[in-house]
Simulated assay, not measured.
Amino acid sequence: MNQPSKIQEPSGKLGVLTPGMGAVSTTFMAGIEAIKAGIGEPIGSLTQMGHIRLGKRTDNTSPLIRDFVPLAGLEDLVFGGWDVFEDDVYAAASHAGVLAQKDLDVLKDRLTAIKPMKAIFDRNYVRRLEGSHVKQASSKWDLAQMAREDIQRFKSDNGLDRVVVIWCGSTEIFLEPTAVHASVEAFETGLKDSDEGIAP
């Protein structure tokens, strides 16, 4: 029988890296930074404003999810990511036009400090996008190692305890699973051989 997993209590700062720093990710980052700055509320956030019912409805026991589930606090989040364009989060969010410019302007110092690392990009997988802020390497394996180094450096430079990565990049072409996806060993070999079945 499987033993229940123990969820470790969050401690220290949590890095949040997004491959892709366009409209979705910059809106997310700007919203969190607004909350951290005390000028916004987490409207629509299940974890921050939602409640969970414990026991019967008549027990009237419904704590906030953030008080019941061990989650990192918003003040502990540190943002970064990769993008094919060099725009910092302020510039990218301004260009995206999702948030009002006056709201972004209040956060300009916070948002201009978040700059993208060079992306791993191949136009064969995202045909409607071109970018110049991209990594160059002789194989997909080397590119993967560069991404690992980025994560380790980001963690070290920001004094983070842990890091999560949330995909926010453009939709890539659909690829059917092949033998290269059948095992870790096959995948690593595929990276070294720059197998076309592995998208960047």
Rank of each mutant, 00 (worst) to 15 (best):
D193C: 08
R123C: 13
L99P: 00
A182C: 02
L129W: 06
H181W: 03
L160D: 08
M49F: 09
M117D: 14
L14H: 03
K6R: 15
A37Y: 05
A113S: 09
K108N: 00
M49Y: 09
K13C: 10
M146Y: 11
L54G: 07
M29R: 02
S170A: 15
L99T: 09
D122Y: 09
R127V: 14
G22T: 03
D87R: 08
H51F: 13
L129E: 10
K56P: 03
N60T: 11
R127A: 15
K6N: 14
E149Q: 14
W167A: 14
K13D: 02
S183F: 03
P63N: 11
G73Y: 05
K115L: 05
Q3Y: 13
I198L: 11
G97V: 12
I52E: 01
M21A: 04
G44E: 04
Q48E: 12
V98P: 00
E75I: 01
G40D: 14
R123V: 14
G80D: 05
I32F: 05
S132E: 14
A93R: 00
G81C: 05
L14A: 11
L99V: 13
Q101P: 04
L71Y: 07
D76G: 11
R110H: 08
F68L: 08
K36D: 00
T18E: 04
Q136L: 14
Q101E: 14
L77Q: 05
L175K: 10
M146K: 13
N60F: 15
E130F: 14
K36S: 00
Q145Y: 09
S138W: 08
F154R: 01
V78H: 06
S170M: 12
G169L: 05
P19G: 10
D157M: 08
A137H: 08
A30Q: 04
D103L: 11
I65C: 06
R110L: 06
Y90Q: 00
V180T: 12
F187Y: 12
G55T: 01
P116W: 06
